[in-house]
Amino acid sequence: GHYRIRINGREFEIRGISEEEIRHLEEALRNGADEKILKEIVDRLRG
């Protein structure tokens, strides 16, 4: 998958993330885990 997200007015492209991972992120966001989720995304993109 290849997705664009906007955070604090800046747009980011996220590549190589699966539909299942996105559902997991959405679930966590609904549970209020904003900073933790951003850290997970950044860590994943770093490799």
Rank of each mutant, 00 (worst) to 15 (best):
A33I: 14
E20N: 10
G9W: 01
D43V: 05
D34R: 03
I14R: 00
G16C: 08
R10S: 06
S18H: 05
G9F: 01
L38V: 10
D34T: 13
I14T: 01
D43F: 03
I17D: 02
E40P: 02
I17G: 05
G16Y: 12
L25I: 13
G1F: 13
G16R: 04
E35Y: 11
G9T: 01
E35I: 08
E11L: 13
A33F: 08
I7P: 00
N31H: 07
L38H: 01
R44D: 05
K39P: 01
A33H: 08
L45I: 14
G16D: 14
R44L: 12
G1E: 10
E11Y: 13
R23A: 14
A33N: 07
G47N: 11
Y3H: 03
G47D: 12
I22K: 08
E13A: 03
L38E: 01
K39S: 09
N31S: 13
L45K: 01
G47H: 10
R10T: 05
E27A: 12
I5P: 01
L38I: 13
L38G: 01
H2G: 14
L29V: 14
L29A: 04
N8K: 03
I17A: 15
E11D: 13
G1R: 06
D34N: 04
I37G: 07
E13Y: 13
R15L: 11
A33V: 15
F12K: 00
D34H: 09
I22N: 01
G32H: 10
K36Q: 13
R6D: 08
E27W: 11
A28E: 06
S18N: 03
E19Q: 11
L38Y: 04
E26H: 05
R46H: 14
G32E: 05
R15C: 09
A33G: 06
L45G: 02
Y3V: 06
G9A: 01
E13C: 10
R15T: 09
E20P: 07
R10P: 00
E27N: 11
G9L: 01
A33E: 07
D43H: 08
I37D: 09
Y3E: 02
R4W: 13
R44E: 09
L29R: 03
I14W: 02
E13G: 02
I37M: 12
R6G: 02
E11S: 06
K39R: 10
H24T: 13
H2Q: 06
E11A: 03
V42Y: 07
I7E: 00
E11W: 15
G47T: 06
G9S: 01
E20H: 10
R15E: 10
G16F: 10
L29W: 04
G47V: 12
N8C: 05
S18V: 04
Y3G: 01
E35G: 10
N31Y: 07
D34F: 11
A28S: 08
R15M: 10
Y3K: 02
